[in-house]
Design a protein around this nucleic acid. Structure first.
Length: 594
DNA sequence: CTTAGGG
DNA sequence: CCCTAAG
């Protein structure tokens, strides 16, 4: 489903019919606490902005279809003269559009629903091009409050329009006390009930950088999701914070209706730029005076301690926004970002990296066509999917499961057919993950193909099995799936490549270290771990580090060690002692002796 | 590519 | 485990 995109005229028509019914005291329903991205349409009579109902959205969409196609001849058409910045603007647009979609579509928090949305993104982008006519408006969190202050300007009709939480993802992901059905509550500042308070935390989530500082990465990711309506796999706190902040500020730039309201009055039709500015101004200038901010602070205090603040209550938002726009430097670290970020701000270095990552994410393909893939986060795991467009960024493909299954079956059936191309070209290999870990995996794949066997797994797995039955933990075999890629399990994705270290592995590691010395990981891998296909040298290094930690943490006081977390394998004390011995020995004796 | 470290 | 920065 799309957004409310349409000419003002369209809306007029609609509202001639429906406007009266929906004009009710604002205070009766809406929850200001919710950072809802409203789709606004203007009421014919008084020119008010009112949130569009879903039906209206539909209608408008239909009416708009023509307009859209009119204005933008074909969907595939992209004016070449558009500057990159222009495009990026649009991207932002579409992002916000997606946001709007999120809330309008979500009746249930299911992901299937959401997953289908990306399909519209392209179309949305197209629509976004005619920003002149965009009726849909996504108001940033504070805008709601602002509307509230402007007093009845934002009429609400809960029957037609149920304000949904900013993003369902936020609720779900953040485990906040919220239900999908937003109960009507008084949005007035005066009545800031506990119900509102319960929602504040979410609100706070999308606040600003300052309040993000204390959040763990997870929370930041949630916030990101809440902000952009899409997942992120980025684990870089700094980046996340910056991005979130940017997203928040940027959302102000979304084109609004041609008509603008100023001081409760309809100003009239303006050109886009001034219009945007106006909207922003009203939002920015008026909001800070609102006592709603207090409420926010309050609920924050009473709610989850997010270390929240009055960040945007006190900050000069407009300036902050402008500053952010310029200051912002594109990240260079993650493919996801490189592909979704504004191209306009990419620096030369980033360009290089971008290319690099492109290469990285490019799959060899069958025959003439090269399939570029991108990493799509799904349920904590990342998979490469054929890269479609920048626009589709909100949700992973819905039939991902199918892809996975298809792929795995491909693998099995593939053994004889043996065209590895297939894997890469059409269905994206789940095994080829972003990082270096894909190396071994692909080796495995190759092996399986060469063997022409259906039990290609066994080829490598047996080694593990062999190793496993020697020790107690023996849980590494369970992880073994065809590709070595994360396996589906009850619909969820396991973290890719998580294979518990078996006791034998540990011992061989220790022994390897004693032989070749700590730090000679490649050697150790080559000689001692030749049988264990996985376990890269890095793995060995990591494991050794952990072993060291364990050994030093445990032996000083034996009491502590006993009631440690028993989540993972218990490393026998002897081994730990051995580890420590080795560690001490090696740290004292320079490796040159060996 | 290999190591060392931070996350 | 993942991701990177350095050699």
């Amino acid at each position: 489903m799309g957004t409310v995109v349409g000419t003002v005229e369209d809306c007029r028509e609609m509202f001639d019919v429906s406007a009266q019914t929906r004009i009710t005291p604002f205070s009766s329903t809406n929850q200001i606490g919710n950072p809802v991205a409203y789709k606004l349409v203007r009421v014919a009579g008084d020119g008010r902005l009112v949130p569009a109902t879903d039906e209206e959205i539909l209608e408008v969409n239909e009416t708009d279809m023509h307009n859209a196609s009119d204005a933008c001849q074909s969907l595939g058409y992209l004016p070449t003269e558009w500057s990159p910045s222009r495009l990026s603007q649009l991207e932002e647009c579409s992002e916000v559009l997606n946001l709007g979609l999120l809330r309008s579509d979500n009746v249930e928090p299911s992901t299937e629903q959401l997953s289908s949305q990306p399909e519209y993104s392209e179309e949305l982008l197209q629509k976004a091009k005619q920003d002149e006519r965009l009726v849909m408006v996504s108001t940033p969190p504070d805008a709601n409050i602002q509307f509230c202050n402007e007093n009845n300007m934002f009429d609400e009709d809960q029957v037609h329009h149920e304000p949904l939480p900013f993003s369902l993802d936020v609720q779900n992901g953040c485990d906040v006390n919220q239900t999908n059905t937003v109960e009507p509550s008084c949005p007035k500042e005066t009545a800031l009930p506990a119900s509102a308070a319960s929602q504040k935390p979410d609100f706070a989530l999308v606040r600003g950088e300052i309040c993000l500082n204390d959040l763990p990465i997870k929370a930041l990711q949630e916030t990101f999701r809440a902000t952009f309506g899409r997942e992120t796999t980025v684990k870089d706190k700094t980046w996340l914070k910056r991005r979130i902040t940017m997203g928040l500020t940027k959302s102000f730039d979304v084109p609004t209706t041609n008509l603008t309201i100023k001081d409760n009055k309809l100003v009239g039709i303006k050109d886009k730029s001034s219009d945007v500015a106006d909207v922003r101004d009203t939002n920015v200038k008026e909001a800070p005076s609102s006592s709603a901010y207090h409420v926010n602070g309050h609920s924050n205090a009473s709610g989850r301690s997010l270390g929240v603040n009055h960040y945007w209550a006190t900050e000069d938002f407009s300036s902050e926004e402008r500053a952010a726009k310029r200051v912002r430097k594109p990240t260079r670290r993650y493919i996801e970002e490189l592909e979704t970020d504004d191209k306009s701000v990419v620096t030369s270095k980033d360009q290089r990296l971008s290319e690099k990552s492109e290469v990285r994410s490019m799959s060899v393909s069958s025959g003439k066509r090269v399939t570029v893939t991108r990493v799509v986060p799904l349920g904590g795991s990342e998979v490469e999917v054929p890269y479609v467009s920048h626009v589709r960024r909100s949700r992973p493909r819905e039939n991902f499961m199918a892809l996975m299954e298809c792929h795995t079956s491909c693998l099995e059936a593939k053994g004889s057919a043996g065209e590895s191309n297939l894997l890469n070209s059409e269905v994206v290999s789940p095994g080829s993950v972003v990082n270096s870990a894909s190396g071994p995996i692909q080796k495995e794949l190759a092996a399986s193909h060469n063997n022409n066997s259906d039990e290609h797994i066994a080829a490598e797995a047996d080694q593990d099995v062999e190793a496993d039955h020697l020790d107690s933990s023996g849980n590494s075999s369970d992880e073994y799936n065809n590709t070595g890629a994360p396996m589906m399990q009850g619909g969820g994705l396991r973290r890719k490549h998580h294979r518990a270290w078996t006791l034998t592995e540990v011992t061989t590691l220790v022994e390897g270290v004693s032989k070749y010395g700590a730090g000679k990981w490649s050697e150790i891998k080559k000689f001692s771990f030749s049988s264990h296909s996985h376990r890269t040298s890095v793995d060995l290094k990591d494991k050794w580090r952990n072993l060291l930690r364990a050994s030093f943490a445990q032996s000083p006081s034996n009491t502590m060690g006993s009631f440690k977390k028993h989540g993972s394998m218990h490393i026998p004390v002897e081994i730990l002692l051995q580890v420590r011995e080795l560690a001490e020995k090696q740290s004292l004796v320079p490796p040159n002796h060996r």
